[in-house]
């Protein structure tokens, strides 16, 4: 009996080697990465700037914050919401054909591999580059921002849509076949209801992200709150930076809470 236990004990598969190898690889890459970073403690200038930033954020420019004209924080935030909102809607609509063309259960292998590659390309090109391209089309301003967001949303949204399409409950289609439904009826009453809740949830999630990313648009003059924020930073006007950041952070937090509630409702019915 004891021999049996002994034998079982020695039969224990050892993963020590795998773990050691993994740790060694991570440490090696870590050491290699350190070569790129010139560590330096912030000098006096840096510390002073840090202090200024904190002071600025703690004592925001209230005139700018409670200014309701088109230069005030509220209008800029509103414009940013509009850019993110439209960008998300257009992006979500554009993502639908992409998603179906990326789904192995819908199209053949060469088609979905090609589409997936295309989406990786779309996803990887930095938003800035699109921003510059669309500024040529629409001129500087929020319109260019909307176009940019529409394109940058496609990458993630279509990828998440594909998962939903692949997770469709096919049992219902069989049941509808048994009832005698046509293909169109199957799509309308069997597939669309399944997709719509999850698609909406993903879209709302992306809206959340677009709102966060909208700051980048300001770098290339594509509207929203990003440009005034970055101008204020580059001009060291920290009180203005403070008021804009407070507005932005509050907005994103509120939108996140609402969007989480909405998504929970959508998915759980």
């Amino acid at each position: 009996m004891d021999n049996l236990l002994e034998a079982k004990l020695t039969a224990q598969p050892s993963k020590k080697r795998q773990y050691l190898l993994l740790v060694a690889v991570i440490l090696a890459v870590f050491a290699w990465s350190l070569t790129a970073i010139k560590f330096r403690a912030p000098d006096d200038g840096g510390a002073k700037i840090a202090a200024n930033i904190i002071r600025g954020i703690l004592s925001p420019d209230l005139n700018l914050l409670w200014n309701f004209t088109s230069q005030g924080v509220f209008y800029l935030l509103f414009e940013t919401i509009c850019i993110a909102f439209l960008g998300t809607i257009f992006g979500a609509i554009l993502s639908i054909p992409f998603a179906f063309l990326m789904a192995p259960s819908v199209v053949s292998r060469p088609v979905y591999i090609l589409t997936r590659f295309l989406v990786v390309v779309i996803r990887t090109v930095p938003a800035l580059v699109y921003g510059l391209m669309f500024v040529r089309v629409a001129g500087p301003g929020p319109f260019a921002g909307v176009l940019t967001m529409s394109l940058t949303s496609i990458g993630m949204v279509s990828k998440l849509y594909v998962d939903v399409i692949e997770d469709l409950d096919r049992g219902i289609l069989e049941a509808m076949d048994a009832i005698g439904c046509t293909t169109w009826e199957k799509i309308r009453f069997g597939i669309v209801p399944q997709l719509i809740a999850n698609f909406s949830s993903i879209t709302i999630y992306r809206f959340d992200m677009n709102l966060r990313d909208a700051t980048i648009l300001g770098l290339v003059g594509a509207g929203g709150i990003g440009a005034p924020l970055i101008f204020a930073m580059n001009a060291y006007r920290w009180h203005q930076v403070g008021s804009i950041l407070i507005g932005l952070v509050a907005l994103i937090l509120i939108v996140e809470i609402i969007s989480n509630k909405l998504r929970a409702k959508l998915v759980n019915g």
Binding site: G46, A50, I53, R212, T215, I230, M233, L248, V249, L253
Partner: peptide, 17 residues
């Protein structure tokens, strides 16, 4: 999470060069 990464990066360049 709310602070835009690009803003954090810009602030970091002011402080750390």
């Amino acid at each position: 999470r709310t602070l835009p990464t690009i803003v954090v990066a810009l602030i970091a360049t002011f402080i750390f060069g």
